[in-house]
Each structure stands twice: as structure tokens, then as C-alpha cells.
Design a protein around this nucleic acid. Structure first.
Lengths: 339, 339
DNA sequence: TGCCACATCTCCAACGTTGTACTGTGACTC
DNA sequence: GAGTCACAGTACAACGTTGGAGATGTGGCA
């Protein structure tokens, strides 16, 4: 059987509560007593029972990270960053996959497991602005991640999507490219990564006085590599002319790149291409992929810190919005070459 | 405040224990009573308090998955498969990253969080056969994953490394390639993925009567893409001649492939290459990468099922070994082309 | 009719921890 | 020397749930 406080207390010759006080850094304890208790803890190999602590104090030291899909490199890297940030705060992380499906996302949020975590990092694709009410009624402290809900009922950590997309587009324009695909559009979406990044694309064109041509805004439903490849195949078949691609994420950029190369097009010679997210793979593709570093570390650390603040002070300030600093990373896929 | 069983019981006009019995599918309950209780649960939106349940029953419904690194595609896909398998058993998964560091791996295993999970899936890189004793004393039900510990103190799920590596090598040999790099060696390692896969490589050569040339066994320390690229760069600089690469995982294969192409070598024309793991990316690289599908789904499902068995019957059978069925996936990187 | 078996439900205690309230002991103040 | 105060530690109850034993009712059978 596992060692409990009772046994530690007996070994140290103090009451159970004193053991508890030592563990929780309660100040009024004589150094000698503290030492005796700590020695007993070491001796017996005592580990606190987190279920009991959770029951009594209402805190479990576990937070939940709800994401669409770990197989997606962006979310895997986000999860990694979150877990490292959480480790610093001594928090464990339960990861839940939603598949990006709205109903699943809401189900998880209202499921019994929410009662066993201190807080949630909620990174959604399906749930949107119109679901604000369904999210507001969740009693668990929450931080929203991503671009689906702004000015919602909880703290929100995101990146400057519009500005970043504008910078990426401007980067291609500065190379002299003029027929740029906006690659990854979701029709009718205003908010959300796709909508915001399209807006950035449009702004960059506008700033240069170039008219927006909707036929260059290519729809890509899911943002997986295979979808990018498929969409690019269709574009090539259609005979559409272009000399640059502003892809809304790295995965579809890589998928598109592969199809372009198969078709005998040179990158960046014939087509310059830039992605979005700075996933690890962009550093090793052929050619290496220019992209936007969304500030993942900063996002993860800020989100965990904000959540921790909410957990500790359950009556904190009104919902906050935080936008991480992005960075354009120019690599081979947008090298300056004779057109 | 959250709804408790007490309130449900009051609403349904039964005792708390009856509510508990309904929830836990205790058989002797009149259908009418069950209905009333379920109705009250729905009505009030009751959710069980998992901390309390964990304290009382010793079960939390959470398992821990300890892996080296989520950023590594292999482990991300493993984690995904494990989480889907766990969801079927209504288990939540806490993921812990060890960085593949032996001390961290052991620390996590002996940490306080082990007391809050019902079981552990332990996928290690640092801990090895000689640490068996340190693992045996952990009271938590455990299933070992990977190739570091065989015939250990716990159930073990793995793949047929030697046979799979032999098949991959034989695949290259069957194309007429004779100077094959064993790419990914860890010097002095006998057990472990690197050791076993090297052995498979050697067996394949042996079966064809080809002598083993140690200079073709290339060391790659960490199995990340960048390490594969770097190692291949060294190989090319050294002037070593070869016409095939049997890479010990997909990431280093992809890294190597990129360097080979930069150097103007054609794949599979000049160099045929096969990887190991069948990560998603192998389907989208240029060329697509032949590889070994280790049977990830089967591994994940078997591991979770075995762990669940251990959790439910704490006095089960002696440790079991399970080896998943692998499959060779031939893609473009080993197409038949004139040499 | 009396007794037993069974189904159905309830009562009590306990899981290991922490919050609240309290006791005892000196030291210091006036 | 009485009152006050800070410190060090303790006792008790409670968090929400479930295991086990017990209570109650119901029907069957001798």
C-alpha cells in the first residue's frame, strides 16, 4: 500500500496536519520540526495523493489542452510548447483531440473530465463566435487559443493574423511577383485563420494598388498536406497563371510545393511560395520553406500563465486579449532569383 | 457550485448510494428507479467528481503516456493512436515528455503524478535493460513500449524490428542494389531500435552471402531530420560509394534524401532509399518514401487493452510480450528504375 | 402460515487531504 | 503581574464518492 501522511506523521512524531503544513509551505513551523518531517517523507518515500488533494482543495494540478489533431504538426508543436510551459508551473496536461469538429469540441468542454482539471486551454476549429454562450457557461477557468472567437467570455491568446499575412504577401510582392495565389481559403469565413489571412493578403495588394482577383483565392478545405497537394493539382489543371503562392499554413504549402515540382515548375524560379506557422519541417524541405513564425513559445507561455492566474484568483479581471509577436522567416522558397 | 450526488438523490427521491449504483451499472435496480435517477441526472446536469471517485475507489480513469518528444512525428502519431484507443475505453491520457533522457524518464515514473493515474504506457529511449529493477518497484500498472527492455517486469508491446529491417534491406537488395548504407547506427547498442535494425540489415546481407562492411553502417545520434541531413552530408564529403540507404527511421531518411537531392543525386535512380515507421509525411515527400509500417494502430490498441486488463485485475498473468505485425510499404523512393 | 430467498434499496464508514478553529507556550508591554 | 500577542502545533470536520453490511419488502414454496 502507498504511504500516507498518517504514517509520515507517526514517523516524525507530529500530527497529520503538521505534515500537511510542511508540504504546503505554511510559514509557522520550527525549522527543526520541518526537518524531521522532511526526513520522514524522504525515508518513507511519501508521495501526496493527488486525488485526495483534489477532492479537498478543489485543485488537481492538471489542465486540459483541447486541440483538433496531434498528427497535425502545428498542433503537435503547440502541444509540446504548452507542456513545457505547464511543466514550469508544475502542471500536468491532459490532451483531448476533437478532430476540429464543433460538436465534439463542445462535448469535451461539457464532459465529466472538465471536473477533474483546474483549467482548460481551448484551441478550436469548429466552435465559433456564435457559440460564445455555450462556452460562457463553463465554470472551469479557460483560455481560448486561435482565431475562432474574439472578445469572447474568456482570456484569449492569438497572433496578429492579418498583419502577418499582409507581411507574407508583401514579401512576395517585394520579389516582383504579381499573380499571387491566396492558398487555403474557406469560403464565407470572415473570422478564423482563413478569413483573417485572406484579409491580410487583400490589404497587402491594396497597399500596392493591385486589384484583388477572386479567382486567385484558392479554397483548401482541411489544411493537411494532402489537401494542399490536391488543391494545387486542380489549379494546375485549370491553367490558372500565377508566380507566387501565399499559403495559409505550412502543411498545405508543402503539399502544393510537391505538386508544383512534379509538374516541372521550379521553386522559387517559376513560383515563389511562403507558408505560415514555421513548423519544424519547413527547415528541411527542398527547397526550405519561407514562413511566418507565429510566436508559438510566447503563445504557449502566455496562455499557461494566464490560465494559472485565473485558477489562482477565481475572481480576476475581465477577459483579456493577447496577441503574440510574429516574425517573417525568409528561406529558399522565396529567394531572389531572376524571374 | 457543482451538482453532487446528494442533490441528484434528493431530486430523484432515493439515497445517494442508489444514484451511485445507477451510475456504476449495479444490476439490482428497478427499471423505474433507474429511469428516475437518470432523469434527475440529466435535469441537473450532474457530472461525477473524478477526484472523489479516484480517492474512494482508487481509480481515476486517467492513464499516463510517457514519450520522449511530441515534436517527433513518430511519437506524435503514436500518441494520437494511443489516445484514440484510450477514448474507446473511456480513459483520459496525460502525456509526459522525457526528452529521451534516462534520468527524466525515471523521475517521471517515480513522481507524484503516478499516484493519480491508473496506469502507465512507458515509451523510453534512455532507460534500458539494466534499469529493470528501477522499473519493477513501481506499483502502478504498466505497459512498456519500444525496444529498450525485453522480458522486463511488465507487459511489453513492440514490433518485429529485426525481421522488418531485414525485409527493408532485402527490398533494396531485390532491386539489385549492393552497397547499402545502414543509416542510423548507435555504436555499441545491441538492444534498442538501432541495434535491432542493424541486426536485421546484417541478416539480410548474410542471407545473400554479402559480407558486412562496417564502414557502410553510419552513425546518426538523434533520429531527427536535421541529424539525418548532417550525417548524409558527412557521408557525401567522405566520398563513400553507395547505391541504397536503409534508414532506421523516416525522419533521418527524409533529411538524408534532401541532402542527396541537393547534391544532384537522383532518387531512386542513383540512390534508392527506404525508411522506417510510415509517418504521414512519407506519403507526401518528393519522391514519396518507401518505409516499414510498424503496425502503429495495433500497437496502440494492444497496449491500451493490456494496460486496462492490468488495471482491472491487479493480480494478472505474468508479464506478456506482444509483437505487432509489420508491413513493407513500397513507394517511389525504391521504384524499379535502370541503375 | 411460517420461513426462506431474493431483489431492491439504505446506512455507515472510509478513502487522504486541507480549512477552520482552537490550545498551549513563551516573550513582551505597561 | 496581568494582559496581549505571535508562534507552533493540534483536533475535528469536511470534500464527494463507493464498498460492505444491513434493512426492508415481496413472492414462492413447503
Amino acid at each position: 500500500m502507498a504511504v500516507t501522511m498518517r504514517e509520515v506523521a507517526a514517523a516524525a512524531g507530529v500530527s497529520i496536519k503538521t505534515v500537511s503544513n510542511v508540504i504546503n509551505d505554511y510559514p509557522a513551523i520550527r525549522p527543526a520540526t520541518r526537518e524531521r518531517v522532511l526526513a520522514a517523507i524522504r525515508e518513507l518515500g511519501y508521495q501526496p495523493n493527488l486525488s485526495a488533494r483534489g477532492l479537498r482543495s478543489g485543485r488537481t494540478g492538471v489542465i486540459s489542452l483541447i486541440i483538433p489533431d496531434l498528427k497535425n504538426a502545428y498542433f503537435a508543436e503547440l502541444a509540446d510548447a504548452v507542456m513545457r510551459a505547464a511543466a514550469k508551473e508544475r502542471l500536468a496536461v491532459i490532451i483531448e483531440q476533437s478532430g476540429g469538429d464543433r460538436d465534439v469540441e463542445l462535448e469535451i468542454l461539457h464532459g465529466p473530465r472538465m471536473r477533474m482539471v483546474d483549467g482548460v486551454l481551448y484551441s478550436v476549429l469548429g466552435v465559433g463566435q456564435e457559440d460564445t454562450a455555450l462556452i460562457a457557461d463553463v465554470p472551469t477557468p479557460m483560455v481560448l487559443l486561435g482565431e475562432r472567437i474574439f472578445n469572447g467570455p474568456a482570456d484569449h491568446v492569438t497572433m496578429r493574423n492579418v498583419e502577418a499575412a499582409q507581411a507574407a504577401t508583401e514579401h512576395l510582392l517585394s520579389l516582383g511577383r504579381r499573380r499571387l495565389l491566396a492558398f487555403g481559403r474557406h469560403p464565407h469565413e470572415k473570422v478564423g485563420s482563413a478569413g483573417l489571412r485572406l484579409k491580410g493578403y487583400q490589404r497587402a495588394l491594396e497597399a500596392r494598388g493591385i486589384p484583388y482577383d477572386e479567382s486567385l483565392a484558392i479554397e483548401v478545405r482541411r489544411w493537411h498536406r494532402s489537401d494542399g497537394a490536391e488543391a494545387m493539382r486542380k489549379v494546375l489543371t485549370s491553367g490558372l497563371e500565377f508566380d507566387g503562392v501565399m499559403a495559409f499554413n505550412d502543411s498545405i504549402a508543402l503539399g502544393a510545393m510537391r505538386v508544383l515540382q512534379e509538374a516541372g515548375l521550379r521553386i522559387p524560379g517559376d513560383v515563389a511560395i511562403i507558408g505560415f506557422d514555421d513548423i519544424d519541417e519547413t527547415r528541411y524541405s527542398l527547397p526550405t520553406l519561407s514562413t511566418i513564425d507565429p510566436g508559438r513559445e510566447e503563445i504557449a507561455e502566455t496562455a499557461v500563465r494566464m490560465l494559472q492566474e485565473r485558477i489562482k484568483a477565481d475572481d480576476g479581471p475581465p477577459p483579456r486579449e493577447f496577441e503574440a509577436v510574429f516574425r517573417l522567416v525568409a528561406r529558399e522558397s522565396t529567394d531572389t532569383v531572376p524571374h
